[in-house]
Design a protein around this nucleic acid. Structure first.
Lengths: 198, 198
DNA sequence: GTAATATCATACCGTGTAGTACATAAATCG
DNA sequence: CGATTTATGTACTACACGGTATGATATTAC
C-alpha cells in the first residue's frame, strides 16, 4: 500500500456506476451531483481519481467496451461470418434491452446531438462505433477469402448494413422496444444475407 | 392588423431557425442564447411568441414533420408498399445527409439520452417516431389485404424492421456517413423484402 | 513518536442557465 | 389628438453547472 491515507472506495466499482449514469443520461445530461451520488463519493475524490468529467467519460467508454459490450469481440471470433453476425445481433439485443442496464447502447445514446462542450465525447463515441464497424468489415473480408461469402460481396457495405441494424435497434430499445420484437427484426435483417444465386 | 405594435420578425422563419438549432444540438444542448441568436430575436420576444423553451421545441417538432420530413406521408401514398418503402428510404437518406440541414434525423437526435429536464421532449420524440412506424405498419397491412405481400407476413414486424433501418441510417449520418453509402445500405436492406417462396 | 503523504469533507468560485420585471417604442381605436 | 394594446431591449433574478481551495483525517516511512 502506498504512503498516505488509503482510498475508501473501489475504483472500478465507482467507474461502473459512473458508466451507468452516462449511459442513461449522456455526457451533458449527467451532472456531477448525479455522478458523485451514484458513485458514492464526493467531488474532490472524483477529480483526484479520474481527472475531470471528460476524462471520467473516456474511462467509462473503455470500461463499457471491456465489460458490458465485450460480447462484440467474442462474437466476431465465431467460426463463420454468418454465425458471428447472428451472435452479434443476438447479444446486442440482450445488451440494449437488458433489465440490469440502461436501455439502449452507450455508444449511440450520447453521440448524436449536444452542446459545444460535448463535442469531444461525441467524437470519441463516433470513433468507437466506427472501430466496431471496421472490425466487422474485416471479419467479412476474411469470410470472402475463405469462400464463405460470394466473391463479389462488398464487405464494407455489408458491415455498414449490420451496423445500421444494430444502431437502429439501439434507438428502438431506448424508446422501449422489447427483446422479442428486436429478435424478430434481427431475423428479418438476416434475410439480406448474401447468396450466390442472387 | 391587430392593435398594438406589430411584430418585426416572421414567426415561421423564426421557428424554422429554432428547429435547425434543436436539430443540431438537441433539446438540452440548445441554449436560449443559441436560439435567440439564430432566430434573430431577443428573449422576451421568444417567450411572448412561443411560450417557453419546451413549447418552442414542440412547435419545432410539428414544423419538422410538416416541412423537412413531409416526405414520409408522401412516400406512403405510393401505389405499392414496395415502392413506398423504397421512396421512404431514399428520401430519408436525402434528409439525414442533406447539406442544407443538420446531419441526422431530428426525431432521433435528441431522443435517447438526457437529463431530467429533457424527459418531456424525449417522450414527445418517442411518440412521433412510434407514430411514423405505425403508419408504415398500416401501409403493410393494406398491402397484405391487396395481396401484394404474402398472407403470412407480419406487418408490424416488417414495419419495425424498416424503422430500425431508418433510425440506424440516421445514427450513421450523424456520424458522418455519406449518402452513397447509405443508398447501398438501403439496397441491402430491401433484400429482406418478403417473398412467397421463403 | 514524528514527519511526510494522500484522501476525505465542507464550503466556496466564476460562469451559464431558464425565465421575468420594467421601461420604451410603435401600432390601432375612439 | 389621447388612450390602449402589443412588441422590443435592457437588466435582472434565482439556480445549477463544472471545478477547486482549504483544513481535517488516516495511513506509511523513519
Amino acid at each position: 500500500m502506498p504512503a498516505g491515507r488509503p482510498r475508501t472506495f473501489d475504483l472500478q466499482q465507482a467507474l461502473d456506476r459512473a458508466l451507468r449514469v452516462f449511459w442513461r443520461k449522456g455526457y451533458e445530461g449527467a451532472s456531477l451531483p448525479d455522478l458523485t451520488a451514484a458513485m458514492g463519493i464526493n467531488r474532490p475524490s472524483l477529480y483526484a481519481a479520474f481527472g475531470n468529467k471528460e476524462a471520467l467519460f473516456r474511462q467509462a467508454v473503455d470500461r463499457y467496451l471491456a465489460g458490458p459490450a465485450c460480447h462484440v469481440r467474442e462474437a466476431l471470433a465465431a467460426p463463420t461470418a454468418r454465425a458471428a453476425t447472428e451472435q452479434l445481433l443476438a447479444r446486442s439485443i440482450e445488451l440494449v434491452t437488458g433489465r440490469r442496464n440502461p436501455r439502449g447502447c452507450f455508444l449511440v445514446q450520447g453521440a448524436l446531438a449536444g452542446g459545444d462542450t460535448a463535442s469531444g465525447p461525441r467524437r470519441e463515441l463516433n470513433r468507437r462505433r466506427a472501430a466496431t464497424e471496421a472490425a466487422l468489415r474485416q471479419r467479412y473480408e476474411q469470410a470472402i477469402r475463405t469462400g464463405e461469402l460470394p466473391a463479389g460481396t462488398s464487405a464494407g457495405q455489408l458491415a455498414k448494413y449490420f451496423a445500421v441494424v444494430m444502431h437502429g435497434m439501439a434507438v428502438q430499445a431506448a424508446g422501449g422496444a422489447r427483446a422479442a420484437e428486436l429478435r424478430q427484426v434481427a431475423q428479418t435483417a438476416l434475410r439480406a444475407w448474401p447468396h450466390d444465386g442472387k
